[in-house]
Amino acid sequence: MSLVKRFTGAVAFSLVAAFSTLQAEEVTIKQGDITLRGELTLADGKTAKDGVILMQHGTLAHNKMEIMQSLSELLKEKGYNTLNVNLSYAVDQRPSEMLDCTIEHKHKHEDAVAELDTWMNWLKEQGAGKVAILGHSRGGNQVTWYAAEKDSELLEKVIAIAPATADADKSSKEYEERYKKPLADIMAEATKLASEGKGAEIMTLPGFVYCENAKAAADSVVSYYKDDERKNTPSLLPKITKPTLIVMGSADEVVDDLPAKLEGIKQDNLKTETIDGADHFFMDLNADELADKVATFVDWK
């Protein structure tokens, strides 16, 4: 294993040559007090100058979950480089595993947008010639949010795979059904604490995102549960100027309202694809078809 350390301004990062079957390198980069982790996979004979697909996983997940690893492997075979990042959730050097629900949750939905920007800047420093960003599920929403509000001169294309939708009334109903307490009461308390400058105060909750009997900062509760149209991916699309691809699964029951929400959106830079029989995670042969659609859309060869 070789370790290369390099410092550029206030940003420190390290490349750890820990080669897997994907010939992937562990990559770390500092953002404030948190060290972010990612996995850089270069296709045979390719360098960052040939372009990199920056990949973001879904809710409370990680960069080694099956859909993300499968895509990295399949895209490598097709000649594409990937940077598969592991969202920190405000945890230093967070491991590549599902987030521990017992932690005090201090992360926010929009943290991913800032982390994507940090990775984009890192790729620029590495000499990347161009970048496509790809996200799955909530990560699909977060990459479109990035493209709509941050963007970059390096960013060429945007790919959202089964991206998250949002409906405040539906979320409130589902929360109460699952956790047996009105979300409105929790939000009232969290919003009050945040408005009083006590957003870091930890609340004890019947549930937070997918975690039961959780502890979360008031600011985190507000971030994940406030009514914000930017969490609804179709609402972001008119603000994106780069070519954008949305891939859906015909058997997806997680974002089953996505096709209907996309029906009224017509813009020249938007393409939508549906994989017949695929659920939310595009397993097995669906993964091959997904990789084909991504590679065809990116089209850097």
Score class of each variant (00 low, 15 high):
8 T>N: 13
13 F>D: 07
14 S>I: 14
15 L>P: 01
15 L>S: 06
16 V>K: 12
18 A>P: 03
20 S>D: 10
20 S>W: 00
20 S>G: 06
22 L>Q: 12
22 L>D: 12
24 A>Q: 07
30 K>Q: 15
31 Q>D: 15
33 D>W: 05
44 D>T: 10
46 K>S: 10
48 A>N: 09
49 K>T: 03
56 Q>C: 12
60 L>S: 05
61 A>H: 07
63 N>L: 08
66 E>F: 02
72 S>T: 14
73 E>Q: 11
76 K>P: 00
79 G>Q: 00
86 N>H: 05
95 P>S: 03
98 M>G: 04
99 L>T: 00
100 D>S: 03
101 C>K: 03
103 I>E: 02
103 I>A: 04
104 E>V: 11
106 K>P: 06
112 A>T: 02
113 V>R: 06
122 W>V: 09
124 K>C: 00
124 K>S: 02
127 G>D: 13
128 A>S: 15
131 V>G: 05
133 I>V: 11
141 N>M: 14
145 W>Q: 11
148 A>G: 09
149 E>L: 01
150 K>S: 10
151 D>A: 06
151 D>P: 00
152 S>L: 04
154 L>P: 04
158 V>F: 11
160 A>N: 10
161 I>M: 15
174 E>W: 15
187 M>V: 06
188 A>L: 09
191 T>E: 14
199 G>P: 02
202 I>Y: 00
204 T>I: 06
205 L>T: 08
209 V>H: 09
212 E>C: 07
218 A>R: 00
219 D>C: 12
220 S>G: 09
226 K>N: 05
228 D>Y: 01
229 E>H: 06
229 E>S: 07
231 K>R: 09
234 P>G: 07
239 K>A: 13
241 T>S: 09
242 K>R: 10
246 I>M: 06
247 V>F: 09
251 A>E: 14
254 V>D: 05
258 L>C: 00
259 P>N: 00
260 A>V: 06
262 L>H: 10
262 L>I: 15
263 E>T: 01
265 I>F: 12
266 K>Q: 12
270 L>A: 11
271 K>M: 02
271 K>V: 13
272 T>Q: 05
273 E>T: 04
273 E>R: 01
274 T>G: 13
274 T>W: 08
276 D>W: 12
277 G>M: 13
277 G>D: 14
278 A>H: 05
281 F>H: 15
289 E>A: 12
297 F>E: 07
298 V>W: 04
